[in-house]
Simulated scan of single mutants.
Amino acid sequence: MVATACGSADSGADSGDAPAGAGGFPLTVRNCGAEVRFDAPPERVALLESAPVTILDGLGVLDRAVLRAGAFPEEYYDEPTNRAIAGIESLGENVDTSGHLQLSQESIIAQQPELVLGLPDGITRESLSGNGINTLVQPVYCPDDVDATTFDDVYEQIETYGTVFDRAERATTMIAGLRERVTEVERSVEGRPQRTAAVLYPTVGGGSGYAYGNRSMAHPQLAAAGFTNVFGDVDERVFEVTTEQLIAADPEVLVLLHTDGDPREVRGAVESLPGAQSLRAVRDGQILVQLFNFTEPPTPLSMDGLERIADHFGASR
């Protein structure tokens, strides 16, 4: 995302907690090749994915969310945030086996939010825009021109939301804290033997599932935790991986992502693959199962996931 002010940004107000209509508006945000114009900070927000919650909460604007759809696992958030989410009207949690939200476009338009965060299958930016509703998509999910992901993508996402919601000062504070957390993890793993790892999204009930390449948040996350991504030479965010590819790569540790359900089933889906017992990670029990947003897309939750990876595999050595 790139934010561009269309009006004067010199309002004399505190940019960290300025009221709606303060300096810097109107502004235009470029998102997935589209230009999204904001005349003022949005007051009615629809959350069609769980990833933006921690940014909105950190900026102090989670109370702008008037609508949500999909799963918002309590494990992601602290108790006050979970209470806030529970108070947001829900359009349902109908998610398919691959974690994609099933939702009608009409149900969103009927609620008339000013901004929709997330774009599930079957819902188009053009249709929402035609009804006066702005949309912002996580840049890593853009269909074209997605570069290799880094922690800078997290910081840039926060900066963009800080601009859109007129909370630039809070955004700066958030970013500084997150940078320090990444640095602390990198320091904590210094001197550990470099090991190989893979991040997978297993298919429960059959098939080897998906693996994450160098365009995913999994790649810099593994590197910061002191691991080499065995699929780091794959120039994709996520791709279908065969059992043969996984066995040939033979990672020493595995991070398994899922959106809901029993983590034991997720782990079992990998351990039951033909030949999986020959994998060092399976043989040595070096497996961590964690919820999807602890890795993807790039948000503050990725830092939580980074710390979980470093702690889990550091303690197991």
Rank of each mutant, 00 (worst) to 15 (best):
residue 49 E to V: 10
residue 18 A to H: 02
residue 18 A to V: 10
residue 22 A to D: 07
residue 22 A to G: 08
residue 89 E to Y: 04
residue 19 P to H: 06
residue 54 T to E: 14
residue 64 R to D: 07
residue 84 A to C: 05
residue 38 F to A: 11
residue 13 A to T: 11
residue 93 E to W: 08
residue 15 S to I: 10
residue 40 A to M: 04
residue 61 V to S: 15
residue 92 G to T: 09
residue 67 L to G: 04
residue 60 G to S: 14
residue 35 E to D: 11
residue 14 D to A: 11
residue 32 C to H: 12
residue 60 G to L: 14
residue 50 S to C: 07
residue 15 S to Y: 09
residue 59 L to R: 12
residue 82 N to T: 08
residue 79 E to F: 13
residue 65 A to K: 07
residue 96 D to S: 05
residue 26 P to R: 02
residue 78 D to G: 14
residue 71 A to P: 06
residue 50 S to A: 15
residue 13 A to M: 12
residue 24 G to F: 06
residue 72 F to W: 12
residue 56 L to I: 10
residue 32 C to T: 13
residue 67 L to P: 13
residue 65 A to I: 06
residue 35 E to C: 10
residue 39 D to A: 10
residue 52 P to M: 09
residue 92 G to H: 13
residue 14 D to H: 05
residue 29 V to P: 02
residue 45 V to Q: 06
residue 18 A to M: 14
residue 54 T to S: 14
residue 78 D to C: 03
residue 86 A to S: 06
residue 85 I to H: 01
residue 64 R to K: 10
residue 42 P to K: 01
residue 73 P to R: 07
residue 35 E to G: 12
residue 18 A to I: 04
residue 87 G to L: 04
residue 62 L to A: 07
residue 13 A to K: 05
residue 38 F to Q: 03
residue 66 V to Q: 02
residue 44 R to Y: 03
residue 85 I to G: 03
residue 62 L to S: 05
residue 14 D to W: 10
residue 76 Y to M: 03
residue 86 A to W: 00
residue 29 V to R: 11
